[in-house]
Simulated scan of single mutants.
Amino acid sequence: MNRPTKDDLDKMENDAIAFYEISCCVAPDNFDIIINCKSTNEIWDVLKIFYQGSEEAQDKKLIITLNEFNNFKALPGQSPKYRFKRFNLIIIKLSNDVTVRSNHETNLQLLNGLGRHWTKTKMILQGDRKIHTLSFFKLYGELQAQESTMLKDCAGLGGLLALIA
């Protein structure tokens, strides 16, 4: 019978440590799904499917999220803060799916999703070269700064509700 080499012993020790660490991180409610796994690799594969779903399910989630991104529109009467939160959740979902968008593409999509009453603000921001490099959060700051101007323009037209009707 062959005796294990130092490398074999190191691999077994590392596997045991990884097995223990992964097991400790699993919620007690979900521990029963990994209890019969024989290796850390098997635990990892089981947990990945359990939490992320199959590849087909992941593909469907990605398609839905891309559609949400491409079809993003501000809802009538929605505050800029809530609109930003909604769009940011879409960006987070995309980044979780490893779908990275450039700052420029993300910024333009958010601006294009704004209502008609934001046209002047959109033109100002799109005409500025920094729209290419501006972070998503700084764009939100720019929109907040422009909000009072936009609200004044809307008030002169009969208010936001007049634009929606």
Rank of each mutant, 00 (worst) to 15 (best):
L134K: 10
K48Q: 10
F19W: 13
I49W: 00
K130Q: 05
S39W: 02
H132C: 09
I22K: 09
F137R: 01
W44N: 13
F69M: 03
S23H: 12
S95C: 01
H104N: 04
G53A: 04
S135Q: 02
H104Q: 14
D59Q: 11
Q78V: 11
D15F: 04
I17S: 06
L47T: 10
T121M: 03
P80W: 02
H117A: 02
S39L: 03
T106F: 05
F84V: 05
S102T: 15
I43A: 00
Q146V: 02
T121W: 01
Q52V: 01
F87E: 08
P28S: 12
C25W: 07
I33W: 03
V26Y: 03
D8S: 06
I91F: 10
I64S: 08
F87W: 07
M123W: 10
R116C: 00
N70K: 15
G127L: 03
L89V: 11
L143C: 09
W44M: 00
P76N: 12
Q109C: 14
F137L: 08
R101F: 15
G141E: 05
F87G: 12
G53S: 05
M12I: 14
P80E: 06
I92H: 09
T133E: 06
S95D: 04
F137A: 09
Q146S: 02
K73M: 10
P80L: 14
L111W: 08
I64R: 15
E21N: 07
T119R: 00
S54H: 01
C37W: 03
I35V: 15
E21S: 13
G127R: 02
L47Q: 02
R116F: 06
I64Q: 06
L143N: 04
N112F: 15
I49L: 13
N70H: 15
N41G: 11
T65A: 11
S23E: 03
D32A: 08
D29M: 12
V46H: 02
D7W: 05
N36D: 15
F87K: 07
I90C: 06
S39A: 09
Q126N: 08
V98K: 10
L110P: 13
K73C: 11
A16F: 13
D128L: 01
H132F: 14
N88A: 08
T121G: 01
F19L: 12
P28Q: 13
S54E: 02
N96C: 14
C24T: 11
Q126F: 06
A16P: 00
G113L: 06
H132D: 07
G141Q: 04
D32N: 12
L47A: 09
T40H: 08
K61N: 06
G141S: 10
R83T: 13
